[in-house]
């Protein structure tokens, strides 16, 4: 439904978006992930026709491109920009009425539309209040209400949960999930749990380039080639080498002291399970194994692996 073709956007000498191409089929919920400054927002700004690309094109519905059919594309898209800008000196009602007018919603349908949007986003209590008096969570709901008022087929949300408290994040996330049922949805974020919870597919970009693209589960599976094991034991740090000598497949990656005990983090290839061997080794010695647990590979690790330079700093 949305096709990006070799999209390039330069700000002066900086390549904010560097030759990105991908397809978003109808109905997909796409998570657009990357560290700050990776080019997520820029890509979305080009897609929503706020900026023009330096090179490349975006085709929507196989027949509209951003150069010639900017208005048609914008009509089709509901957009929540980064930081959720709103006309804060208007009341929620006036603001939504203005957006509805601009979206060419006929006057006689406005009441009905407003009712639908209010019930979806839960803003009935604040409808007659000025926007600058609202809490951040409510502002975010108003931003979403504005984006869905014309029932768009494409919904684009740029970092929809930044700055919200944990409860509000959960509420907004549920709302997004609800809204995404019958729409093509693109959510950008630098928070992994967010896209992990909501999205069918994830594209990770870094420095303007796509570094990973796949279904959420696939991405996790592809990077689950190491098992990460945490051991807590009273074995002193000087003695732990005997364990790694006994089972050479283990690599010790971190040790940290905790009161009388020490916490060891160990890694091994996933194709073989060494937990039994470790347990048996402890049984032979006089040391006590207090805890042993596997840390599951999360997208967090995938993300860090993909977006951290060899030097070890995030770009």
């Amino acid at each position: 439904m949305i096709r990006l073709e070799n999209l390039v956007k330069n700000y002066g000498q900086v390549h904010a978006v560097d030759n990105i191409s991908f397809d978003v089929p109808e109905g997909q919920i796409l998570g657009f992930l990357g560290p700050n400054g990776a080019g997520k927002s820029t890509t979305l700004k080009v897609l929503t026709c706020f900026l023009s690309p330096t090179n490349g094109n975006i085709i929507v519905d196989d027949k509209y491109n951003i150069y010639e059919h900017s208005r048609e594309i914008r009509q089709m898209i509901g957009y929540l920009p980064e930081n959720n800008p709103l006309y804060t000196d208007m009341t929620v009602y006036d603001f939504l009425a203005f957006i509805a007018d601009m979206r060419s919603i006929p006057k006689q349908e406005f009441k009905q539309t407003l009712r639908r949007v209010i019930s979806k986003t839960g803003i009935e209590e604040v409808i007659s209040k000025r926007i600058d008096t609202l809490s951040k969570g409510y502002k975010q709901r108003v931003g979403l209400a504005q984006a869905i008022i014309h029932d768009p087929r494409i919904l684009i949300l740029d970092e929809p949960t930044t700055g919200l408290d944990p409860n509000q994040i959960i509420e907004i996330r549920e709302l997004i999930q609800e809204l995404g049922k019958d729409k093509t949805l693109i959510i950008s974020s630098h928070i992994l749990q967010e896209v992990q919870a909501v999205c069918d597919r994830i594209i990770i970009i870094n420095k303007g380039k796509i570094v990973a693209d796949g279904a959420t589960e696939e991405l996790k599976a592809a990077h689950r080639n190491k098992t990460h094991l945490v051991l807590i034991s009273d074995i002193p740090q000087a003695e732990i080498a005997t364990l790694t000598q006994a089972i050479p497949a283990l690599t010790l990656i971190e040790t940290s002291s905790e009161a009388d005990n020490t916490k060891y983090e160990i890694e091994f290839d996933t194709n073989q399970d060494f937990r039994k061997d470790i347990y048996n080794w402890f049984k032979q010695t006089n040391w006590v194994l207090l805890e042993m647990y596997r840390e599951s590979v999360s997208l967090e690790d995938v993300f860090r692996n993909l977006t951290i330079d060899d030097g070890g700093t995030t770009s």
Binding site: F50, R74, P81, P85, L86, I99, M102
Partner: peptide, 9 residues
């Protein structure tokens, strides 16, 4: 809000 306004049709 310029972004909001200019991304309307």
């Amino acid at each position: 809000t310029l972004e909001l306004l200019t991304t309307l049709p």
